[in-house]
Amino acid sequence: MATVTETKGWTRNEMAARAAKELRDGFYVNLGIGIPTLVANHVPAGMTVTLQSENGMLGIGPFPYDDGVDPDLINAGKQTISQLPQTSYFDSAQSFAMIRGGHIDLAVLGGMEVSEKGDLANWMVPGKMIKGMGGAMDLVAGVKKIIVVMEHVSKDGSPKFIPECTLPLTGRNVIDMIITDLAVFQRPDHSSPFKLIELAPGVTREEVRQKTTAHYAE
């Protein structure tokens, strides 16, 4: 008997590709660590998108070749990277001036929980080791548009898009769009509710409803 391979929902790479659809020509963009980093692989051909690294760089290039590795050239995830002809370097205060000052068009971040009011929790789990918020609080406070890319439910199956965050917040009422492996939610402004705008292949509205405790429009 032939086994049917279930092709339901988006892979990590497909979630990144979906986030990349929100890029626009000329955008300055900050990508978080994990799935958000993969967004860089999906910039449409012919579109100019400049990536910012909060440790002090505009114009992140690809990972270097083995003989081009430079310890003085890393991204915010501390990975070695390369520069581009249009790259500029600056200090951390300048870097966050552009972030906090609203000069970055888009940030794509990972999330542990997002509330229906657009709160984000992604920096600590009480009782476990706390690594720190890094630049996440500054990014959600200052960047024009914030997209969270995360699995729809946690490993134990509990929803991550919920009425109120249970974990300590990274920012209050800061999220514009949520991309999960099952669906996309968006809201036009920070006083509107989220709306389900897209389903991943093979995913039904019922399934999303069943795995989401947050209230959202359909």
């Binding site: 909060e54 951390s92 205060a93 966050f96 706390i130 630049g135 200052g142």
Partner: peptide, 10 residues
């Protein structure tokens, strides 16, 4: 004392 990165720089 955890301090957001941009706040620490500033």
């Amino acid at each position: 004392e955890f301090c957001p990165q941009g706040t620490l720089a500033e």
